[in-house]
Amino acid sequence: MIVDPYKVLGIPDTATDEELKKRYRELSKKYHPDANLGNMEAAEERFKEIQEAYRQITDARERGESGYGRVTPGYTPDRNYSSGYRPGQGAYGGTAYQYQKKPQQEGDRRTYAEYEDPYFGFGDFFTRWQQSQAQNTAGAGASYKTYGSGVEAAAKYIHENRYDEAIRALGAVTLAKRDAYWYFVAAIAHQGAGNNLTAVEFAKRAADMEPGNTKYRDLLRLLQSSGQRYETRGKNYGEVGAGATWCLSMIALNLLCNCC
């Protein structure tokens, strides 16, 4: 984590979102390795720092906090991404298909294990989703350990952003043994895998099974927060008229309508 991300970008913490974005664009262009061929390594270091600073500030602002926000793991975009897309193994029933990428070097990413975070750092699904897309599932090589099945194994997979495997590990627990904690961990795994509906459903279940547990309530609130932010912003726009029809609207737009 960067101690002073605003300083890295050279802007005050009162900068508007637009000013932040403009500055980030400027600096990205300046320090992009492709634009610094004579000095690639140093430029790349600075570029990563700038990216990290931008992400940190964006995360914090998204959470509505001022200052530097919660600890999030570092993210290194995999510039060696190859077109090695292929669907993962496994049947349906809760598992998500994943992209395969070339294995990353050990130590390229910091894991959650480095941070004291009882919530598995779930405050930052976005980064975690990104990282899970960079995963190479089992069979690709020695870089990735297997943890078996069960809730604790799932938690370990989640720490490493391996949501597909977490879901599989959770699936091994029989229905009767699925307690509130199971649903809590499963909610996080599913959100990470992009199954946001399942995630909310499971978070609700956990909170219902243990109403006194604030961790579970917090997770549910977090999962629902982006919907609320969206609806607030959406209020800036007008309602669609009651008498309107689709084709009339499109004709009004003067656009080619392929449907009628």
Binding site: D17, E18, K22, Y54, T58, E62, N196, L197, Y230
Partner: peptide
């Protein structure tokens, strides 16, 4: 409506993170 909103809210969230001006 709630389901559709949940999808759009994540998409919009990603948009807001992009440094588009």
């Amino acid at each position: 409506e709630n389901t559709l909103t949940m999808m759009m809210s994540e998409a919009a969230r990603a948009y807001e993170r992009l440094p588009i001006v």
